[in-house]
Write a protein that binds this DNA or RNA. Structure first.
Lengths: 138, 138
DNA sequence: TATTGTTATACTCTATAACTATA
DNA sequence: TATAGTTATAGAGTATAACAATA
């Protein structure tokens, strides 16, 4: 298992998995900004500080990526009515459309690589993957 | 699944999974050199050019990491008897001992995070992970 | 006093280009 | 001519430090 994990965690694997899904929108979303966009999609409206926690980077990094995604028209930043220091990040209709396309292409890539797996193995893997991911973020 | 995959592929996840396993040898093996060491353990004796393919980086990067690991006494570089241009990388006894320790600590971390999983789920996950990793490298 | 967000800066890691030596 | 390995250089991405504004 160690070998499989080392392979999966390699930087090149991330590029390899993201590249085909991001290709059509490569000019506005790259492999480092996509995690921010994905987190806003899942947890928004959310502040940049909380995004940083989910994405696992420093606040300054999340802030810069969010600014870039705002410039690209994929998300908006509105003052948090409950805290004037914070900005709440939220997807624009264009952002929602872009992420829908990315997810659908990513799913196609993944499903293709599992096409010849025995029945049930893929479902069990996805189940385990979700458990493992949850364990990491707790 | 997309969310779980984004989490797993995050740079911070790699650090989080490797950190406890590498801590005792942090002065000689870090998270970017470990994949090189692991590949030498699995495929050695092997040339730097082939290591680069397995690790998914450029030749120059693999070469530098290998040089550092040699300086640390974890691997040796001997001229390939079949090709005087190439150097064959191979673990030293110390290198084997170090990687044994890393793998055992990594296994402990992973097993701990799966401790409360239902019977069979962990095995199915590992099976799927290995299949998925193989699909990525082909 | 602590926290949010931002900017300037330095650091790490990587790829590209150029070179030598060998096939 | 092509490939293995190395070194110098530039680029991308990140964290640290310092700042203003608000809790």
């Amino acid at each position: 298992m160690e070998a499989a994990l080392v392979t999966l965690l390699a930087r090149s694997t991330r590029e390899q998995l993201y590249a085909p899904a991001l290709a059509p929108v490569a000019d506005i979303v790259d492999t480092v900004r996509y995690p921010v966009l994905s987190a806003v999609a899942r947890f928004g409206p959310i502040s940049a500080a909380d995004i940083a926690i989910h994405v696992g980077t420093d606040r300054t990094v999340a802030s810069r990526h969010a600014a870039a995604l705002e410039t690209a028209g994929l998300l908006t930043r509105d003052v948090d009515p409950a805290d004037a220091r914070a900005w709440l990040l939220q997807l624009t209709p264009r952002g929602r459309s872009v992420i829908r396309g990315i997810r659908s292409r990513m799913a196609a890539t993944i499903e293709a690589s599992m096409a010849d797996w025995p029945d049930g193995v893929a479902d069990a893997f996805v189940d385990g993957l979700e458990r493992f991911s949850r364990a990491l973020t707790e």
